[in-house]
């Protein structure tokens, strides 16, 4: 191994690591706010990439049918809940506008925009939008009804959602993989090695997303509300932050981050309907390194996973996955020695 190969491997590792980092952040966020270990995070990645591939072909991503079906179910759930509480008429209208009209608008936008074969940038926005819209609906349908359950119940629900979404992915996108075109074909010379424009995009956009999240959580009211919920659920509720609203908003952010990662990874590798799971799992290992609570540690852990994976594929390609996933054992050991064990507070 010479310096050039080491640099190339580092570049590859960082590119994947940046994507894992986005997913790790989403996982930490979802866990902090809702206590859900969000297994289906990877599905958003696959949906994002494959929706973009569908738009590239001028086809309407079939996820809009999922979106519409989920919108109808969520609206019914919401209306029933409102009826039980004998809510005011205005609440019904808001519920229909929020849970039915808004997703339907997204679906309609995709329906009309898809055959136009817009520029790549617009297609990327549409693909992300279509997947993001699934996030809050997923919370309303799958998680909100059991939101008070134990972490284990929530995990089981998350696993179920993963299987349902995986099956849907197969139905919507077929068993075959797709690649999306790169944002740029540019290649730059950097100290003797080729750096692809696409990987620069991945670094830049990931850094922007992480910076944007940091800004949103520290500066905006909604961000602060999420942070408050993550910090102390009961306390947040006492000061008037709806946990359901926080949960739905969190899953929206998680879906957006997932779709975003999908769009970024699409040109780098062939994405299959079930590719997301493994990518999400590596993000999860990164998040575990951060103990599922620390954002910077999770991001650093995810970058580390990317790098280890890259070097492992060079030195011992047959043991690559083993090496990556074995890493979780010393981390867990270290964490269990370092932190005092405390009973789950409920």
């Amino acid at each position: 191994m010479n310096l050039q190969i080491a640099a190339l491997l580092a570049q590859d590792g960082l590119t994947n690591g940046a994507i894992y980092a986005l997913l790790a952040l989403a996982l930490v966020l979802v866990f902090a706010v809702t206590r859900v270990v969000f297994v289906p995070q990877g599905e958003f990645v696959a949906f994002g990439a494959l929706s973009l591939a569908a738009l590239q072909n001028g086809a309407v991503p079939k996820t809009i049918w999922l979106l519409l079906a989920m919108a109808v179910i969520a609206t019914i759930l919401e209306l029933v809940a409102l009826a039980r509480r004998r809510a005011a008429a205005r609440a019904y209208m808001l519920a229909v506008a929020g849970w039915l009209v808004a997703p339907a608008l997204v679906a309609a936008l995709l329906w009309f925009a898809a055959p136009l074969k817009l520029a790549l940038g617009w297609q990327v926005c549409l693909a992300i939008l279509s997947v993001t819209a699934i996030g809050p609906l997923l919370y309303r349908i799958a998680i909100q009804p059991v939101a008070q359950g134990s972490v284990l119940v929530l995990l089981i629900v998350a696993v179920a959602v993963h299987f349902v979404l995986g099956g849907m992915g197969l139905l919507f996108f077929g068993a075959e993989g797709s690649r999306t075109p790169a944002f740029t074909d540019a290649m730059y010379q950097l100290g003797g090695i080729n750096v692809s424009g696409q990987s620069l995009y991945v670094y830049g956009v990931s850094a922007l997303a992480i910076g944007g999240l940091y800004w949103a959580f520290s500066q905006t009211l909604y961000g602060k509300a999420l942070m408050a919920t993550a910090f102390n659920r009961v306390g947040a509720r006492l000061v008037g932050i709806s946990p359901n609203f926080a949960g739905a908003l969190t899953l929206t952010v998680a879906a957006a981050l997932g779709a975003f990662s999908g769009v970024l990874i699409g040109p780098i590798t062939t994405v299959y309907y079930d590719s997301g799971f493994l990518v999400g799992l590596k993000g999860f290992v990164g998040a575990i390194i951060g103990g599922l609570v620390s954002y910077p540690l999770a991001a650093a852990g995810a970058l580390l996973i990317g790098l280890i994976e890259s070097y492992a594929s060079f030195w011992a390609s047959q043991y690559k996955e083993v090496i990556v996933f074995t890493l979780i054992i010393p981390v867990l050991l270290w964490r269990s020695l370092k932190t005092r064990h405390h009973e789950e507070d409920q």
Binding site: I268, S313, Q318, K320
Partner: peptide, 12 residues
Amino acid sequence: KYNRSDASVTGQ
């Protein structure tokens, strides 16, 4: 060697 599901084979 690589796996069917690998996202990157740069190292190999």
